[in-house]
Design a protein around this nucleic acid. Structure first.
Lengths: 161, 161, 161, 161
DNA sequence: TTTT
DNA sequence: TTTT
């Protein structure tokens, strides 16, 4: 059966990405992303804000970009799909977690950026620069500080669209 | 902070919608939706399918549409947002559930429809008919069998776009 | 600057796809897609329908799928991007045309299907079947009658997500 | 027939919004939005950028927000639908123009902001603040400088989702 | 030109 | 638990 499972988020990182590597070396990044919306309470007429937290998972090249350029507080556009998986917690209880697996990402210059002075990380990324990079392959040029990576439109270089 | 939290799903109902009513009468519908994708296993070259299950929540008019026209197996387009809430299970353990709150829905004619013969349910809905209905208000005409309801573009009647 | 240019359409083909081939053999399919919405006229209280027509362009594998399985009247989900190009008409006047370049497509079983009896075309496609196929490469199995092709998630076979 | 006609754009304004008013006072804003993507030329291995320009139309409250807070160069998220209309140019020739009618908008802090010093315009908007405002009705508080307005989720104040 |  |  044909399905569509698409998520589009614009929000801010709740913490720095955590990077792990599978045994075969494949990098994975995890972080939380807050998407907020505000509304006026019908009774009190007060402005209120609700925030939704999303568990983001990025693989391979996107994980590397996250490691290099994303920090707590940064604003990003993420396109991906919803996945739910189960795992055993420390008491052996089966738990479920829903995560967004990112397939496309664009850094937005909207939020404060940690410049991570003296921490070995690059400080500033140019807001809204873009890179299109083959999946399962490191960024061609490590000097670039991309604000967008779309692993979903690989191989379109040099094509008539 | 400005956020975007948008989900787009095309899938099939895993079961008939369950309808409840809040104390004030507000209807809520719940069902699960399967979105499948198929791929070729790199090693075995076999075709495989993975299915993701989504917990769908519909409120008010959309819940009424679901009650009337959606059945197990039906194919629908659902646009909404991701929400996660916690609750206490029967052992008093805090659990989390991620749900998709539908904001727009279009029935697709893709899957077999239960005609629920003799069960008090309406049998066939015309595939791909559309209705635009004010939120928090029952469908104007109960005779209609809409395949699409968009509560997000209310009040656009008679406007220049 | 980082950009997002994404279109999501569910609609019906206004005519059979036209297939052309570039000099290097690359196939291109063109057709129009109608997306309709209905609303109630605020004054007359009549139900009205407005239809928007989109110029769809599909390349390579998606063009081949369209040629094989899509016919006038069929219902499809198309994800792509907006592009505008100029050309000279027969009087030498510069004209502009906006087109949707499809990047992902799912056939929906919603509309009547032309079975094209005796016309050399395959008659029925199974509604809502799915195929994921490498870009710039013909379908692995011509016997399959896919209802979904996503060229944007190529190469994800055998990966941990 | 059930249709979906949805566009999601993240880009930068090519010029300040132009605001007009219908005879009945309804405000309309027009501007162009650039969405860029970069890629590596397969032959020259050079980084290249292509930019797509979109004609944006905003009505009522969104037009007012645009007038107040959007300037050339600003980065915005816009969700809307594709529309094509015809008109007669000054030679009486029928022309077609495709426009994106915005239904939801979020200001992103990504691009340089004109501070329009001494021009009577408000200078800085707080990046990524959000407002949800009833359609066809001016913003409740003119003091606010919203970065997000979603006219598609009106009337959801005080509701259980 | 589609669809209901 | 759906769908093909």
């Amino acid at each position: 059966m044909a399905g569509v499972n698409k998520v589009i988020l614009v929000g801010n990182l709740g913490r720095d990405p955590e990077i792990r590597h599978l045994e075969n070396g494949t990098p994975v990044a995890n972080f939380t992303l807050a998407t907020s919306e505000s509304y006026t309470d019908r009774n009190t007429k007060e402005r209120k804000t609700t925030t939704e937290w999303h568990n983001i998972v990025l693989w391979r090249g996107l994980a590397e970009i996250a490691e290099k350029y994303l920090r707590k507080g940064n604003s990003v556009y993420i396109e991906g799909k919803i996945t739910t998986r189960s795992y055993q917690d420390q008491q052996g209880v089966t738990k479920y977690i829903t995560e967004i697996v990112g397939q496309n990402m664009t850094m937005l210059g909207g939020a404060q950026r940690n410049d991570n002075a003296g921490n070995g990380y690059p400080a500033q990324q140019p807001a809204n620069q873009q890179v299109n990079s083959p999946q399962a392959q490191p960024m061609a040029s490590k000097q670039e500080t991309p604000a967008s990576v779309d692993f979903s439109s690989d191989e379109t270089d040099d094509l008539p669209f």
